[in-house]
């Protein structure tokens, strides 16, 4: 009897606002497509171009393997250095920024630093550092250090804010100074996760280090860009294959490291 009293039910009725919004998005997409001069003939011509490009890529050429190797070694060095210094700087910043350990006069500047480091893509930061310290690996390292602080610093800060304060309270009750509380109360609780963050960051930096080279901040990216400009597409493919292989290898390594630490805990 109650079902009769309910008016023709439309459980998924959408609001007028949602409909208008959908219509607006559709209209804007059409408008933007027109503005940017996408047309069918141009697309077909593009496919044609792409086919020729792909054709010139095969077979990949590893004859300049020494350039490839030099570029990669530099990229690796950039990634490892950036991760090392990034994590090292992240630790104190994260402790300063943790709201459960520090008063607000310490947390907000630390949080501001982390937010600023996260604000820009590493490539943009790399361009800024190239202007500041010149072309080369140093700019790449600095750019990725900033990125690492933004990422590891934030995650690490959150990990510290989730620790058990009971354990901290007990260490404080022994009269331990703050630095000792960190060593014996805070770090043991977050160490496992910190190792996880470091392997993620090394993995990310490995990928990013190939990218910052394109704007001139050292590493394989520079080699890749030069190969493009010389139209050596077969060498380009060789570089791309190697990047894929290295990134996969990095991921395997990260999984392996994580297994070691998870197995232990």
């Amino acid at each position: 009897m109650s079902s009769a009293s309910i008016p023709a039910a439309r459980p998924f009725e959408s609001s007028l606002g949602a409909k208008l919004l959908a219509l607006f998005i559709l209209a804007y997409a059409c408008y933007a497509l027109g503005q940017l001069d996408f047309s069918w003939p141009r697309f077909v011509k593009g496919i044609d171009n792409g086919a020729r490009f792909l054709d010139r890529m095969f077979p990949p050429s590893f004859k300049n393997w020494d350039q490839l190797l030099t570029g990669f070694i530099e990229s690796m060095q950039i990634a490892v250095l950036a991760t090392f210094f990034g994590v090292l700087i992240s630790l104190p910043i994260a402790i300063l920024g943790a709201r459960n350990l520090m008063p607000s006069w310490a947390t907000w500047p630390a949080r501001l630093i982390v937010t600023l480091c996260r604000a820009f893509n590493p490539v943009i930061v790399a361009i800024i550092f190239i202007k500041a310290v010149g072309f080369g690996a140093l700019a790449g390292v600095l750019a990725l250090v900033m990125g690492s602080i933004g990422f590891v610093g934030k995650l690490f800060m959150e990990a510290i804010e989730e620790i058990s304060m009971k354990q901290i309270e007990a260490i404080r009750a022994t009269g331990a100074p703050f630095a000792s509380v960190v060593a014996f109360g805070v770090l043991p609780q977050v160490m496992g996760r910190l190792v996880g963050f470091c392997t993620y960051q090394l993995d990310a930096n490995l990928r990013n280090s190939t990218m910052v080279g394109i704007v001139g901040a050292g590493g394989i990216g520079g080699t890749l860009f030069a190969a493009f400009q010389r139209f050596e597409y077969d060498f380009v493919l060789a570089i791309l294959i190697t990047i894929i292989a290295v990134v996969l290898l990095g991921e395997l390594l990260a999984n392996y490291v994580k297994r070691i630490f998870n197995g232990e805990s």
């Binding site: 058990s164 009971k166 354990q167 309270e169 007990a170 260490i171 109360g185 043991p188 609780q189 805990s265």
Partner: peptide, 11 residues
Amino acid sequence: MVFQEYNLVER
């Protein structure tokens, strides 16, 4: 000081 929930550093 001794605590109700022991408050040992677990790890």
